[in-house]
Amino acid sequence: MGIIEPKCFAGEQPGTRLIVLGAVHGNETCGTRAIERVTAELAGGQLRIVRGRATFVPVTNRLAYQRGTRGGDRNLNRHLAPTAAPADNEDRIANALCPLLADHDVLLDLHSFRSAGSPFVMVGPEDNAGDLQPFSQAARERALALRLGVARALDGWLDTYAAGAARRGGSAAYGVGTTEYMRAAGGCALTLECGQHEDPQAPQVAYRAILRTLAHLRLIDAPDPPPAARMEGLRLREVVDRAHPDDRFERAWTSFDPVRRGQRIGVRHDGAAVLAPFDGAVVFPDATAAPGAEWFYCAQPHPRLSR
């Protein structure tokens, strides 16, 4: 058994090379269930790839999946890069996964999240020639994001993460996961957050997104799905770290809960208030974050992704 086991289906005509990942985090299984369903339909002839190539990895991090944990030895979706001297489970996965990503044009990475909330898609940066994440396929990503069947899109991950890493004396490279690596390798990539981990609808959200992706990229003979009539676009702007074990939230936050500038989000262990820096939303709140790690992000509405 290999450390990852891709399932590949090729069409007779040239076309896009798509890769779909499930269980990059082992406790996020909706993508696994959806990929198993799609690959069974492909193997049974109910679906057929006619152009390009579709590669599916139902379980990307097998050790974490078997344990039912987010990571095996660490978070696979941080500091993703091949290494000549792999030191842990995730290094060994990266050495197999990174060349596989680079051999494709488009990545759809299927995830879920801890707290309650609606599905959303994370996209890459605007086209740019900067040093952090140069990119030239923003329009292609946006077109696919609008067709996945969700009504919220979020960008600004790596810029915001890099600013937080610099503040705590770390490296922006630690913020590189599957989608960032894919873009650096010349492709485009989306992360679809399909719902809460245990939401029975999350596998259906993932399954529907795979079919819509196959149709939009013309890998199967099916009409191009219409773009979403409405999309809420947000951009991550700031990350706030937890500094002490006794830092606590003002209340139980859920991603995309709205906040007003100056509203109290949390309280430091010494009683100092942690206030919203602007009108916007709380994103990725983590009440269990370790001291020195990301506690929550703040996002603002952004017109680039909105409809």
Rank of each mutant, 00 (worst) to 15 (best):
Q137T: 01
Q66K: 09
P125S: 11
F9D: 05
R78W: 03
N77P: 02
D105T: 11
P125I: 05
L63C: 14
L101D: 07
D127H: 09
T29P: 01
A43D: 14
V57N: 11
L42E: 02
T69D: 14
L18S: 07
R92K: 08
G52H: 02
V57C: 13
V123G: 08
I49S: 05
V106L: 03
P14L: 06
V59C: 11
P82A: 04
N61P: 06
F113G: 03
G22M: 01
H104S: 10
G117R: 04
T55N: 12
D88V: 13
V20C: 02
G22W: 00
A10F: 05
L18M: 04
D109Q: 10
R33V: 15
L132I: 08
L108C: 10
L76K: 04
V59L: 07
G45I: 03
T69P: 08
Q13T: 12
T39C: 09
E36Y: 08
D105Y: 05
G31W: 06
V20R: 00
A138T: 10
A116E: 15
S115D: 14
E36H: 10
H25A: 12
R62F: 01
V57T: 08
G44E: 01
P99M: 08
A87F: 09
F56H: 05
N89V: 12
R62M: 09
M122F: 09
C8K: 05
D103M: 15
A54V: 00
A64V: 12
V20F: 07
D131I: 14
L107T: 10
R70W: 00
A85D: 15
H25D: 05
T83Q: 08
H104K: 03
R51G: 06
N27I: 02
E90H: 01
A116R: 12
E28N: 04
L97D: 09
S115Q: 13
C98N: 04
L132H: 02
V20S: 06
L42Y: 03
V38K: 05
I35F: 13
N27M: 02
A138I: 07
L101Y: 02
S115F: 00
R114S: 13
N89A: 14
G22Q: 02
E36Q: 12
N27F: 00
G124C: 10
P99I: 10
V57M: 12
E126H: 11
P119C: 05
P86Q: 03
N77G: 04
L100Q: 02
A40W: 10
N128G: 08
D131R: 14
R48T: 14
P125Q: 01
N61M: 11
D91F: 12
S118F: 11
A138K: 11
P14R: 07
V123R: 11
H104I: 15
S115T: 12
V123I: 14
H104T: 15
A10H: 03
A43Y: 11
F56P: 08
G26P: 01
R67F: 06
V38Q: 07
E36T: 00
G52E: 01
L80S: 08
N77D: 01
V57Y: 13
A138V: 04
V121S: 05
T60M: 00
A23C: 05
R74P: 13
R37L: 10
G52C: 05
G15Q: 06
R37F: 11
F56T: 07
R48N: 14
G72N: 05
R51P: 02
N61A: 09
R37D: 11
T39G: 07
R67W: 04
T55W: 09
A34S: 04
A87D: 09
